[in-house]
Nucleic acid binder design. Sequence first.
DNA 1: TAGATTGTTAATCGATTAACAATC
DNA 2: TAGATTGTTAATCGATTAACAATC
Lengths: 213, 213
Amino acid sequence: MKEEKISEAVVHRLPKYYRYLNDLEQKGIERISSWKMSSDLDLNASQIRRDLNCFGGFGQQGYGYQVIKLKEEIKKILGLGKKYTAVILGAGNIGQALINYLGFEKEGYNIAALFDVNEKLIGKEFHGKKIFHMNDLGAYIAENPVDIGIIATPRAAAQQAANLLMQHNVKAIWNFAPVDVTVQKGVKLENVHLSDSLYVLCYRINNETETEL
Amino acid sequence: MKEEKISEAVVHRLPKYYRYLNDLEQKGIERISSWKMSSDLDLNASQIRRDLNCFGGFGQQGYGYQVIKLKEEIKKILGLGKKYTAVILGAGNIGQALINYLGFEKEGYNIAALFDVNEKLIGKEFHGKKIFHMNDLGAYIAENPVDIGIIATPRAAAQQAANLLMQHNVKAIWNFAPVDVTVQKGVKLENVHLSDSLYVLCYRINNETETEL
DNA sequence: TAGATTGTTAATCGATTAACAATC
DNA sequence: TAGATTGTTAATCGATTAACAATC
């Protein structure tokens, strides 16, 4: 791993490479060239080679890349394969959906518990995951280390939720609330702004002509 | 609206501006300068002025921008305020979660129906939205015009779902499946790759040092 | 070895930022 | 009018692409 700062653009392409390589592996394809990747992924071949070289020389001149080896390298870079424990703050629609989503689809991620302020929900269970009161988050984390805090609260409660997580030393936040929460230095943050994405789609519907492609 | 091609980067900042201006309006703030926006949004002031000027001269020298006016302009640009009818393909976890999410949180978007292939689900209802068989999509659309097709199927069925939507002339697709679906020229597409976002978060956990602010 | 394809340097392109004249 | 702040041009920065020498 080189010491250069990796750009956001590169980091965001890594999952795409990873998905693609998994597909290739599934199809039993053993080797792949940047040229073929380029046409499949609709990215420039130079860019692909450059991206991969940020992390090491995974290819072989005159041959290309070994699919499985490259996949494993990217897996390691992304930190997949490790186990992550997460808690969800907010046991409403999004919170509940995420339990299902992460439970069924992804291995490596364990949702340990949910937290809410709604008394009616506290003590209940969804798919075997208990709902605690938000006030008990500190006590819970003291007993059960948590890697990722997922914010699935309403808009207005999101920053508070983030603060609470940070107070209890959670170092990574996955935010689903439609706000840009502020985090301390050192805390990792990823936003999933569903409504923003929908707005962009509407923008395209209304503004983008058929000229492109 | 000028005739220049608006860059992706600009388009993706519009929802952020829109959210921010809504906040200001709520707080009763009437005017705003690019300088203040800059510090609140953590964007460069020149960039903000430039972004807004892609669409028109909404400001006033020596004064700044009128919050309400600017908000309304961006709303119009994004095509909000209009009504959109959507169908969801895939009535699993994500599909169900989206019904709740869009039903409660967003006005302007109407989920008309769900479609699935699972016989056990067909005929049932979620929050008053009926689940039809995927095969009946064409007949449904013939009767009820649909603006947006939401793909909430498993990975393997996503491209098929996209094809089905396009066959029946749906011009905008919001894709939640963890694949890059291919669409015809003229069809608008927005992806929400939840797993990609989670991978990026894991990348940050494992690779990014505390050097940055 | 000859052919293929990487890794990497150099060229290009586009987006961000700075600067300032226009003007409310 | 003087002060403030936009709209816009010019400068900078960074990311993408092209080109090619290195090498399997």
